[in-house]
Design a protein around this nucleic acid. Structure first.
Lengths: 209, 209
DNA sequence: ATGCATGTTGACCAGTGTGGTCAATAAGCA
DNA sequence: TGCTTATTGACCACACTGGTCAACATGCAT
């Protein structure tokens, strides 16, 4: 970016970068249109190139912004208290859900660039190390003794993880199909808490040892 | 389509429609390029419009072709023998996997038009009835007595379904990330069969009643 | 050989949208 | 008054769009 952009109030900066991320997430770098971005951000074509060198410069700034934002939020996602795997997965799922509804632009943009090959190497590294960090924290300080003992904990953990992923996928699709509002989301979450209990019954040991 | 297209050997018809479906799946109707389609199908621009009235006509024929193809394949997907839910889900997952690797164009095209709003009504209906049919068959003639009895069968079925979905999603992502060949796919499937046993241990009753 | 139906090509069309530039102007402030 | 900073949108050359069409090839019955 150029100096001029940094001089803006950070609120306006966010608006502009979000508009850009929306466009990039939807169309990828090549097919993203700077014209649509400026229209969406409510500014003239000239300003975009007053703020950024070119399209690629803007794209890089989006990546930087998104990674900073996620890195900062990751702290809150996972506390490393001692708890069962199911409880932790539930906490993470909730945190993800909230982050996604509160920051859809960042979420969708990151999801896209995560799979995209045309991301500059240094960002790619940061992205991967961010993923590693997340995985490490996910298994940190777990109380695995709650699991039933007749099957290896790793097996059970993967099964549980798949279950959560499948559930997340279903709600995601429901959200896209019907337009869901936040009330619906809460309702689904309540519904799911029933399934949480079932999972504990199934995956944890029945006795209290 | 026009008569001329019907006069083609069905092999060539498939090639052309597959090229079109690939383009539509990747870019959606509006952004799909007829120029790329003809290049991909190895023909001249003129031929496309010798075979089809226009872009929309071609799109409609793709939908018809895809639906016919899936409808016909759905028969084989699900036998309705008496079996446990996990066994059936495993069979379906395998069938889906094979269908997807053998007919990627149809699969991806259908996945896209399933979510797209700009699909003509009659096709939309056929698509939905196809989905209904699949769901009906999925629960037909199941032996639910194998499930453990301390939790309702519907709860267990949803959990199992989510687990399979989550697993499918993971392999899907792995496939996209690294280029996987068929040997890898088989290896993953073998690996998963271990998890299948674990699921049976967890979800089914221990005794043989 | 002639004529006619069927195939096949790619140059070409008007139109739209692209990333990016720039002269003109406004606003704030010394 | 001047100088720096903001801001606009017309404008550029260009790429590509869906679609057309005159030209030509091929095969086949007469």
């Amino acid at each position: 970016m150029k100096e001029a952009f940094r001089r803006l109030e950070s609120e306006r900066q966010d608006e502009i970068l979000k508009a850009a991320m929306r466009e990039f997430a939807q169309n990828g770098f090549d097919k993203a249109s700077t014209n649509r971005i400026v229209k969406d951000a409510g500014m003239s074509k000239g300003m975009l190139y007053y703020y950024f060198e070119n399209k690629e410069d803007l794209f890089r700034d989006c990546i930087g912004y998104a990674l900073d934002h996620m890195e900062q939020s990751l702290e809150d996602w996972i506390g490393t208290e001692r708890e069962g795997f199911i409880e932790r997965m539930a906490r993470i799922a909730e945190a993800k859900r909230r982050y996604f509804t509160e920051n859809p632009e960042v979420s969708e943009f990151v999801a896209v660039i995560f799979l995209s090959p045309d991301v500059p190497a240094p960002f790619k590294e940061r992205l991967e190390s961010l993923g590693e960090e997340g995985k490490r924290k996910m298994f940190d300080g777990l109380d695995l003794s709650r699991f039933r003992s007749d099957l290896p904990a790793e097996t059970l953990m993967r099964l549980v993880q798949w279950t959560f992923d499948g559930y997340a996928r279903e709600t995601e699709e429901r959200m896209k199909a019907e337009g869901m509002d936040f009330a619906d989301l809460d309702r689904y979450w309540d519904e799911f808490s029933g399934y949480l209990d079932a999972m504990k019954t199934i995956y944890y040991r029945g006795d209290r040892s």
